[in-house]
Design a protein around this nucleic acid. Sequence first.
DNA 1: CATGAATGAGAGTTCATTCAT
DNA 2: GATGAATGAACTCTCATTCAT
Lengths: 198, 198, 198, 198
Amino acid sequence: MGEKSIQKKKFILEKARDVFIEKGYKNVTMKDIVEACDISRGGLYLYFESTAQIFLEVLHAEEAKGSDDFMDHIAEDATAADILLLFLQEQKAEIFRKKDNLTVATYEYYFENKPTKKDNILKKRFDSSVRIIEKLVEIGTENGEFYCESPAEAALNIMYLLEGMKISAQTIGLTNEAMDRQILYLLTMLGVGEEEME
Amino acid sequence: MGEKSIQKKKFILEKARDVFIEKGYKNVTMKDIVEACDISRGGLYLYFESTAQIFLEVLHAEEAKGSDDFMDHIAEDATAADILLLFLQEQKAEIFRKKDNLTVATYEYYFENKPTKKDNILKKRFDSSVRIIEKLVEIGTENGEFYCESPAEAALNIMYLLEGMKISAQTIGLTNEAMDRQILYLLTMLGVGEEEME
Amino acid sequence: MGEKSIQKKKFILEKARDVFIEKGYKNVTMKDIVEACDISRGGLYLYFESTAQIFLEVLHAEEAKGSDDFMDHIAEDATAADILLLFLQEQKAEIFRKKDNLTVATYEYYFENKPTKKDNILKKRFDSSVRIIEKLVEIGTENGEFYCESPAEAALNIMYLLEGMKISAQTIGLTNEAMDRQILYLLTMLGVGEEEME
Amino acid sequence: MGEKSIQKKKFILEKARDVFIEKGYKNVTMKDIVEACDISRGGLYLYFESTAQIFLEVLHAEEAKGSDDFMDHIAEDATAADILLLFLQEQKAEIFRKKDNLTVATYEYYFENKPTKKDNILKKRFDSSVRIIEKLVEIGTENGEFYCESPAEAALNIMYLLEGMKISAQTIGLTNEAMDRQILYLLTMLGVGEEEME
DNA sequence: CATGAATGAGAGTTCATTCAT
DNA sequence: GATGAATGAACTCTCATTCAT
């Protein structure tokens, strides 16, 4: 596959991404993508053979894009609490982002494709976040910012909580304030005094 | 609609429930249900006009069934912690139940139907659970079983956590042990001493 | 068939008539009629076996109703021109009647059922009108009201003209004024001086 | 849409035309047309989305075909009466044409689609004919061939008469002779002496 | 590589008609 | 007589997928 082909594939993936954001996963047909890309029906099949494959590649691209390695963007003098708060704010932003949200499509995809752990991007992303948080809590506990006896469980707890709010936002609704309160509650549980927040 | 019709409708809803459990929501066609019920194509339309309607009624029936009013089944001398644990165990059982699980179908349904709060069974169920937990935490705090400064937030926290584990079970996987550890963590956060559990 | 049955049949025909007026002939289903009558599906089949049969009987009933023998309602001292004008006004009223118009249904019915002349109510009605007009023109010509060399052709001419306006009203549109002018033109052709009209 | 597509569309319209002639408008299904064209079910939808659209295009094509501009085919030395007679003969031919008659389908179509005047081909055709006849009668009156005080009304009269005979041919029946007599009557009314005809 | 016409399977839906009660 | 549940044929419409150009 030449350079041109690679460009074309990228182009299709970008357009397809928009479609998945708009319609979720199951509602998307090859026709939808063909139309979004303004290419021929047969043309699409030269690059992809199903919406499943396209979606998976969209997800991979997303992954690559997203890994601007969170850890690297932290200020030198940031405390563990600062970083954790930053992480939570970022998650919140993602949850409330309207026009750039693959959440529904992703869930729909994994509802019918529960691949082995290795291929499961969702799981990889989840686990990676858990590790980051765990590390943060450990560090924070060591230097007295937090109080936590089990950083591993705390990290998982935070991630499941975030997952819960993410899915709630898509089904039963979630307000900005409700999420803020949960973030506050969570930090309080870690022993962060209110005077230390703002 | 006579008594017989009502029976038939119930029968269809039961069969349809099985189909939704097996295939989720979006994958189910009127034909699937017709075949599961072993009735004629036109026959189904005498009772329901779409899979959406059928699913909603399945959900309502589920609701009615489920409301064996949890509160009533509590032992006289049960402590708040006992009851909370009971509730969490029940949620765990539901999450790990293989052959009786409408979770995926329900999420799929609400992904494309985000009705007003009134119609949203998912939200009703969620809110009702929040209220129960909140009450438990309040009582437990009053009599010294728990330590909690904000029962309302704690209740929401528990419910979002459960939601997070529920969706995780369907996407990235969730082990029995992982859930147990989260339950333990949660109780610990409420200040329940380990000696008091087992 | 007992008295009660006859009443029921009449009832059905009345309701069915409304349906045909509203929807034409081809668009009407047995279901429509069943619903309009608020009887059971099977019940309708006890009396009629198809919409075609029902429509035909509606048409027969119409015929019976309509034959209040036009000729009898004429004033003693009415001139031929008076009577002809009366007839034309009546035809006009029928054409412009909105809520009581079986025209479309009737045409639709005869488009797919071109029965022998004997059964053709439309033809019977047409021929009967032709005879009446012919007689009128003859009488009018004899007593000098009209000038007409061929009353038979004139009568047919008038009837075809009316048919043309009737169908036009249902397809390309026909205004009240346009019809008035045609009536005027027609009388003029019969040599009725304008001073004699108003 | 390429040249080939245009050809295919034309082909479908031709076949569909035959179907409409044979079965009228309301009785025709997409399946009928698919079978007449010997194409696939889905194939037809590439070109048309409903029988209504197909019929309308058939009618438009008919219109285009029919506009061999009647006016142009008139002999140099033809009198107004000659031309009018020619027109009437042509109408008669159309009415009695068995195997090439869209009359019924057209009426059925306009029974359920009464679009604005602009889209109403039937009305356009009617009005255009009225104008032609009016002109003819005017000219004929000027040069003494006809006697007519109101060419506009006379033209309308002729057209409504033709409409009446057209619909009668499809419902109550119309003989060749009956139509001939009406044509004769009509010319007589315009003051054309019998010696001047045939 | 790329096109887009063509196919045919299959989902949704409606109705005339029957038949056990 | 009367009911209305049940059937199955028929129709509309959409898509994934192929293939000649």
